[in-house]
């Protein structure tokens, strides 16, 4: 995963000083039109195949989701929802390809305590650097989308890399390449926003008046975006967050908290040092020892 050079990195986890590069590279983005998805799971297979991952055979819970959740091996997962549209009375099969959203404001990166374990490249991909990962699981808490998974085998966190290695050699992500219906598209963010406009226009002509783009402003936008036919109700799609943002608890913990904590500890130590310098030690006097001796030797 060292296909990118230091100057291609715009943000690094747990680093006090960051030298930003001259400017952002071309912002890339993946656009997923859920209305075009047929649930074939070719993207899941392509992801496992390209990243050389294998998911152990699981159990059938009577739903199409397989495996049942994202895992350290499954970086992308088709989530199936059966929804009865109260307006039309139709049963709608909503299928969402879940995975890292590559937030512009990445909560995982902000929560990470290991320097350089999470980076954001100039092209806006948020990537995990596994040699620096310590397996603490803070990224899981930072993520507003519940994406990273820490492996119990090597204790490192895994998620979609947006195929940063393929991009570096001019290839598109494996899932986008494998998608047979072009439900997954890849390009620059500008191109994908324009593409989304077209797809939304088509959906609206088909009667989906609430069709729209999912590019949540709470995380300053994402570099994986959805076209949703019911953009007014994202939670329909297997609980996609309505308005995701980094939890205020995480902001308190890894934002102001770390400075406040250090200040309180430092101030206490300083007060102690000054107290000693001003007052000097509290010594037992010879008089105290004599009194004790007199007490101990007094007849009972």
């Amino acid at each position: 995963m060292t296909t990118f050079q230091p100057l291609d990195i715009v943000r690094t986890s747990a680093t006090v000083t960051t030298a930003p590069p001259a400017g952002r590279d071309v912002e890339v983005a993946k656009l997923i039109d859920v209305s075009k998805c047929i649930g074939c799971k070719a993207c899941q297979s392509a992801c496992l195949e390209w990243n050389d991952l294998r998911e152990p055979v699981g159990t059938n819970l009577g739903v199409y989701d397989n495996p049942h959740d994202l895992t350290p091996n499954t970086w992308t997962l088709m989530r199936f929802t059966e929804w009865e549209n109260p307006q039309s009375g139709n049963l709608e099969w909503l299928i969402r390809k879940d995975g890292c959203m590559h937030c512009e404001d990445p909560g995982c990166l902000k929560a990470c305590p290991a320097p350089g374990a999470i980076v954001q490249y100039a092209n806006c991909i948020v990537d995990f650097q596994h040699d620096a990962c310590i397996g603490c699981g803070y990224c899981e808490k930072g993520c507003p989308f519940n994406i990273p998974r820490v492996s119990r085998i090597d204790n490192k966190a895994y998620k979609c890399s947006l195929c940063s290695d393929r991009l570096a050699i001019g290839q598109q992500p494996a899932c986008a390449k494998a998608c047979p219906t072009h439900a997954i598209m890849f390009g620059t963010k500008t191109e994908m926003l324009a593409q989304a406009e077209k797809n939304i226009g088509v959906l609206k002509t088909r009667g989906y008046s609430k069709a729209g783009l999912y590019n949540p402003p709470g995380v300053s936008g994402t570099h994986v975006m959805y076209v949703l036919h019911h953009a007014d109700q994202p939670q329909l799609y297997a609980g996609l967050a309505d308005n995701p943002s980094i939890s205020p608890l995480v902001e308190a913990w890894k934002g102001i908290g770390k400075y406040a904590g250090m200040a309180v500890i430092g101030a206490t130590a300083l007060i102690g040092a000054f107290h000693y310098l001003v007052r000097g030690p509290n010594k037992v006097s010879a008089h105290d020892e004599d009194e004790a001796k007199r007490l101990a030797e007094a007849p009972k």
Partner: peptide, 17 residues
């Protein structure tokens, strides 16, 4: 839940300080 764990992180840090 994940929110419990987030809260735990803040509580753990504050109690540690």
């Amino acid at each position: 839940t994940m929110d419990h764990r987030r809260l735990a992180a803040v509580v753990h840090a504050a109690a540690a300080v």
